[in-house]
Design a protein around this nucleic acid. Structure first.
Length: 920
RNA sequence: GCCCAGGUGGCGGAAUCGGUAGACGCGCUGGUCUCAAACACCAGUGCCGCGAGGCAUGCCGGUUCGAUCCCGGCCCUGGGUACCA
């Protein structure tokens, strides 16, 4: 019987499905383990070999954990709302639900072939009303909550109303969009509309005007993480800054907790760093400067991390969008300011980025008074100050800030150095070191001492206060799109009113086959007939992609529950994800939003863990490896790589699927495209050698390798092992089918340990010590490697073991070997395990124990010391007495090989330095 | 610019509390089997050199008896970020 992977793989996939082998139970006496993949967006192109990498890795771990006695939850689903299906709908008029369904079916069949141990009974799709009911539910909860800064948690909005009624705006330290000041009696006197406006300022899900990333080509706003280098992540269209009223989530209120709680997570440092930078905590102070425009005087608040440099302020700068601009522009400067604002406004985001560091600005005409020195300094307006950060206004200290310096030099403003001995004639001195001068009471202090001293002074004199600022902004939560979750909000007399929870899900209405925005520029939902509640219009925006993916890991715990996102029992059993595998591209998007969403639900008592993902592994990207042929210009003759320099050639991409080991399949090439049918070739050594390069895997480069094809040719087990063998999981690497034959050969060798032609050759004979040693070396290595996700070396360990054990047919060796192999190559392992007489799945076996004595029994470790200090250890044969070893070592005078008792040992000797050799 | 990660044969990659550099696989070379090919199996394979030997973990220094590994300074590649006061 030959190793027939086609038959075997189909057989066991069906068997697993029929027997519900991988169904996870919500009540079990076993310890739980939750292994999660980032669920895919089902795109039209289907899976290529890069997509399953992370799924294979997580599947190996899930199967391994089952063998170790855990009740494993390993679910899969689809992130099914999103732009591509909608773009396709706009072009074709086909309902995105249809496209999505087709794509999901394709994904499912591709995944099924690889033999994953997913519990498909728990599948979720974010576009299912029964699923997005809970996305809408969470939104309603956020709408009905505020963030209490003093308790550091979200609370029901009714409690805030009660506080306002008792003590006015001072009654609560609430996270808000704008600082408001009103008394209890003022609050009570507000009408409904005013009250709802005020509350909107505090809700965790709120509607407010903000500068957004507007993408005209997509006709929608985008979140900061959906914009890369000034263009949309999807499609690469230009994005501009625009003020719009949008739904937002008050993620910024959670910035401190999102940052602090990173410390306890088992994530890579680089990913934690990415989130830390994104959240961007900076400590400093807010300070009030009096600003004077004619006879009007204002208190203008600025934020700085360098309170110590306040004696060096020579001007102030406002962001162009700042509310101070209007107040502080003098009549004489009004025209110049208006021109400047107009110029800034028409720049696209991309232009702004490419023109970074180009100095622009305009004088407002007003002056500000330095609260410490009384100095009168001009107030300027410049785009290098951002409205969304701090207060949108800064004090400029050109001597010690390079941006202020560039501005001062450009507009010829004074520079006052504040640190002894620093030279600011060519550039600013930004470093936080040195001793202060020209700084009044701060003189003589080091910078590190001066910063807190200055803040203390400012606080003591009522000029300002300590303040921590975050770079993290609130998440813009509405999209002018059709294919997303509708908001369960309607506008009663213009007031945003939540729908009743019992009316959820609010299902997406049909809008015919036109998915474009309306002529009036309204979102597609404006086309829906009767999109209203009691005659009041329902919100026409939909939620963004990250809404549905923020809490899906909770839904898997209890996917069919109709009365809760997740029941308390299910949540308390599964708690959170033990291992999450996915790409780093979600570092500042999904992985922030999910943590925020979870913390919000935690605050309200719906979930029991404050973090969703305990351990996170980022698999690397699989890049494409393109092949090239070289056509001699003006001919249909192709020249092999080694000879191409002798001709004038054009490089052409060639489909990698008709190239094997960089050798072109000539017949397949002629058949590939009609114009190559009569191609001629100049060969080297009878073969056509192609060039190659690493590029992104894409259709246009003809370098897409489809996992189905690999499964057809080599089988799923070979694909799984090969993807892991390719290199470290977390590293990006090009796909290269070259080495796959080695894996295929390995599995055939495993097969031959069980079957020699048609005969089953497994015996009951006792294994030799050498065989046991090989087996246990493998068990120990596999255990260690799997726990460290070092799968590529595990595969090597399998090969070494099988090379050593090749002629062993002892059941006592083969059975553990099959169990250890099963997470990696589950189909062949299942087949062989059953061949050994088992009726249950190999998935229910126990991972074999590692016994060290088999590897160490005839070795002995010696420590070699120089001058009494242990320098290194050597392993020598036990049969050689320590004294003899020492004598031998002393007699050597160079680095040498010592051969004794069949063992080769290196003994490093430095003349006259060895003083001791001891048995450990 | 700033923050991370990483530079090892023809290729993917092993090996780091400092101790035989190149495991395992691919490729290549030779051989066995075959009418032949494929498959399979065996042997060899870092580079230079006929050889003895010499040179080898991005570059330059340092620490050490000994450095792919630790320290300092560069160069390059990949990722993140982009006027965050």
């Amino acid at each position: 019987m030959e190793y027939n992977f086609r038959e075997i793989e189909k057989k066991w996939q069906d068997w697993w499905s029929l027997n519900h082998t991988f169904r996870a139970e919500n009540n079990s006496s076993k310890p739980k383990y939750y292994v999660l993949d980032m669920f895919p967006y089902p795109s039209g192109a289907g899976l290529h070999v890069g997509h399953p990498l992370g799924y294979i890795a997580s599947d190996i771990f899930a199967r391994y954990k089952r063998l170790c006695g855990y009740n494993v939850l390993h679910p899969m689903g689809y992130d099914a709302f999103g732009l591509p299906a909608e773009q396709y709908a706009i072009q074709t008029g086909q309902h995105p639900a249809v496209t999505t369904e087709n794509n999901i079916n394709r994904y499912r069949s591709q995944m099924d072939r690889i033999g994953f141990s997913f519990d498909w009974s728990r599948e979720v799709r974010t576009c299912d009303p029964s699923y997005y009911k809970w996305t809408q539910w969470a939104f309603l909860k956020m709408f009905a909550s505020w963030y209490d800064n003093s308790l550091g948690k979200a609370r029901p909005i009714a409690e805030l109303e009660a506080l306002f009624a008792r003590e006015g705006s001072r009654g609560a330290d609430a996270a808000c969009t704008q600082e408001l000041d009103f008394s209890a009696s003022e609050w009570l006197a507000f009408d409904e509309k005013k009250k709802s406006e005020v509350l909107m300022n505090y809700r965790i899900a709120y509607q407010g005007e903000t500068t957004v990333n507007w993408c005209p080509a997509l006709g929608t706003v985008l979140a900061n993480d959906e914009v890369k280098e000034g263009v949309s992540e999807r499609g690469g269209y230009p994005v501009e800054q625009k003020k719009m009223t949008q739904w937002q989530l008050r993620v910024s209120a959670y910035a401190g907790r999102l940052l602090d709680d990173l410390a306890d997570l088992d994530w890579t440092d680089s990913l934690k760093d990415m989130q830390r930078n994104w959240i961007g905590r900076s400590q400093g102070a807010e300070m009030v400067f009096k600003a004077v425009n004619g006879d009007k005087q204002y208190d203008m608040t600025i934020f700085t991390t360098r309170a110590d440099t306040v004696f060096g302020v020579t001007f102030m700068v406002l962001a162009p969008e700042s509310e101070w601009v209007d107040k502080l522009t003098t009549p004489e400067q009004a025209a110049a300011v208006a021109d400047y604002l107009a110029e800034v406004k028409k720049k696209t985001e991309r232009e702004r980025i490419s023109q970074t560091h180009k100095v622009t600005g305009v004088f407002s005409g007003s002056y500000a008074i330095n609260p410490l020195t009384g100095a009168r300094v001009p107030v300027w307006i410049s785009e290098y100050v951002l409205s969304g950060y701090g207060t949108g206004a800064i004090m400029a200290v050109p001597a010690h800030d390079s941006r202020d310096y560039a501005f001062a030099k450009h507009f010829n403003l004074p520079v006052i150095p504040l640190i002894e001995g620093c030279d600011v004639s060519e550039q600013s001195f930004d470093a936080k070191e040195g001793v202060m001068c020209n700084s009044g009471f701060l003189n003589g202090l080091t910078v590190k001492e001066a910063i807190p001293a200055a803040i203390d002074y400012v606080e003591a004199h009522g000029i300002g206060k300590r303040k921590v600022n975050y770079r993290l902004r609130d998440a813009i939560f509405s999209r002018q799109r059709y294919w997303g979750e509708p908001f369960p909000i309607y506008f009663k007399e213009g007031i945003a009113t939540p729908m009743d929870e019992s009316s959820l899900p609010l299902e997406l209405p049909s809008i015919g086959n036109n998915y474009k925005p309306t002529e009036a520029g309204e979102p597609p939902l404006a086309r829906a007939q009767g999109w209203e509640v009691d005659g009041w219009p329902i919100e026409k925006n939909t939620m963004p992609g990250f809404a549905g993916s923020s809490a899906y890991y909770l839904r898997y715990m209890d996917p069919h529950n109709d009365s809760a996102l997740v029941s308390r029992e299910a949540d308390e059993y599964w708690r959170n994800v033990d291992l999450y595998i996915g790409g780093t591209e979600h570092a500042t998007g999904h992985l922030i939003y999910s943590r925020f969403w979870n913390k919000f639900l935690y605050d309200l008592g719906y979930v029991c863990e404050k973090e969703p993902f305990k351990k996170l592994i980022n698999q690397g990207m699989i890049q494409g490896r393109s092949n090239f042929v070289y056509r001699i210009k003006g001919t249909n003759t192709f020249v092999s790589l080694g000879l191409k320099d002798r001709y004038d050639t054009t490089e052409l991409h060639v489909d990698v699927n008709i190239v094997h080991n960089d050798k072109l399949d000539l017949e397949a090439f002629k058949a590939w495209r009609p114009d190559f049918a009569d191609a001629e070739f100049i060969l080297e050594d009878g073969e056509y050698v192609c060039g190659w390069a690493v590029e992104k895997m894409s259709k246009s480069m003809y370098n897409v390798v489809n996992p189905d094809m690999i499964c057809d040719t080599y089988g799923a087990d070979t694909l799984r092992l090969y993807e892991m063998f390719l290199g470290p999981l977390e590293q990006s690497k090009p796909w290269d089918t070259k080495g796959i034959d080695g894996i295929s050969r390995f599995l055939k060798k495993v097969w031959r340990m069980f079957y020699d032609r048609d005969a089953f050759v497994v015996t009951d004979e006792q294994p030799t010590p050498a065989q046991l040693k090989s087996l246990h070396k493998l068990i120990g290595k596999a255990r260690e490697d799997i726990e460290n996700f070092s799968y590529n070396t595990t595969v090597s360990a399998f090969m070494i073991a099988v090379n050593e054990l090749g002629d062993c047919h002892s059941r006592a060796i083969l059975e553990p070997l099959v169990i250890v192999l099963s997470p990696f190559a589950p189909h062949i392992a299942e087949e062989l395990y059953h061949a050994l007489g088992h009726e249950e799945s190999v998935s229910y076996a126990a991972f074999p124990e590692y016994r060290e004595e088999y590897t160490r029994e005839d070795n002995c470790t010696y420590a070699v010391s120089f001058n009494g200090k242990t320098r290194f250890t050597v392993e020598l044969s036990k049969s050689l007495a320590p004294a003899a070893v020492e004598e031998h070592v002393r007699s050597l005078d160079q680095t040498a090989r010592y051969v004794g008792d069949g063992q080769i040992v290196k003994v490093i000797v430095v003349p006259g330095k060895i003083v001791n050799v001891v048995v450990r």
